[in-house]
Simulated scan of single mutants.
Amino acid sequence: MKLSAVAIDDEPLALEIIKQYCTQINEIDLTQTFDNAVAGLDYINRHRPSLLFIDIDMPDINGIDLVNQLQSRPMIIFTTAYKEFALEGFELEAIDYLLKPFSFDRFEKAFQKALSRYQIGNTADELEPFFVYSEYRMIKIDFRDIVYIESLDDYIKIHLSNSKPVMTLMSLKKIALKLSPKKFIRVHRSYIVATDHLASLSGRKSGFLQGWSFL
């Protein structure tokens, strides 16, 4: 099993080190590297890798801002020379935070954390149902029944294939953390859709898909 990975850093030497380290780990497939963060953002939104190595302090866009703009967030390992960004990095539920210069052993340790998370998530592709509080009771939601999820201020509405929608007090960002990036995609600031139920996607505007239709 290989994890598809992308690296973004404005320093060519830093990218070269990551490339070298990745060649020493059989489970990594480093598909692309970018010294231009905007180009990297577009690639990730189109190809949805499993893992992202990303610097934070970059000239065109801050790494943390970039992660916040991703439609479907991969696992994140921050690679940076500035330890003061660590708290913000971990608030984004990053797998790890590598402070430059980092050794191969430290890099491999971070990757093994990502691999463990991936294996757990992959097992969870047949994800266990979860419960939400709605209409004064706990309601069980099966991931396979979700067609799309709509954000309504502080609430989300979970649209299901086999029953009426369920509304619960939760943010779209929080529910996204429960979802497999292989099964769900954020097509708009207010919508996450299940790829199994999608018939088509079209257009982009400000990093989001403009149109979609269901099977």
Rank of each mutant, 00 (worst) to 15 (best):
I95G: 04
L99S: 00
I76R: 02
F53N: 10
Q71E: 14
R48K: 05
R117L: 15
M138F: 11
L169R: 06
G121E: 13
I61E: 08
V147G: 03
D153M: 01
T33N: 08
I8P: 10
K83Q: 11
I18N: 12
E27I: 12
G63H: 05
L179A: 00
I175V: 11
H197S: 09
L99V: 14
L201Q: 08
I156A: 00
E88Q: 08
P49C: 03
Q119C: 09
F53Q: 06
K205F: 07
F85D: 13
L3H: 08
A14E: 11
K205R: 14
Q71W: 01
N62I: 12
E128K: 14
T80F: 04
Y97F: 15
F53P: 13
H47M: 07
V132H: 06
E126Y: 11
K2M: 14
I95W: 09
L152I: 08
I185K: 02
G89D: 04
L41F: 07
L160C: 12
R73P: 03
Y191I: 11
T23C: 09
Q69G: 02
S103T: 15
D42N: 12
P101I: 12
K164P: 07
N68Q: 09
H47W: 03
S50W: 10
A14P: 06
D57W: 01
D55E: 02
L127M: 11
F107P: 13
H159Q: 03
E135K: 06
Q210H: 00
N26P: 15
F208P: 00
A81Q: 05
L3R: 01
R48I: 05
A176Q: 05
K157E: 06
Q71L: 15
L92W: 10
L66P: 11
T123Q: 08
S213A: 14
M170N: 00
Q20Y: 13
D105P: 04
I175Y: 03
Q71P: 13
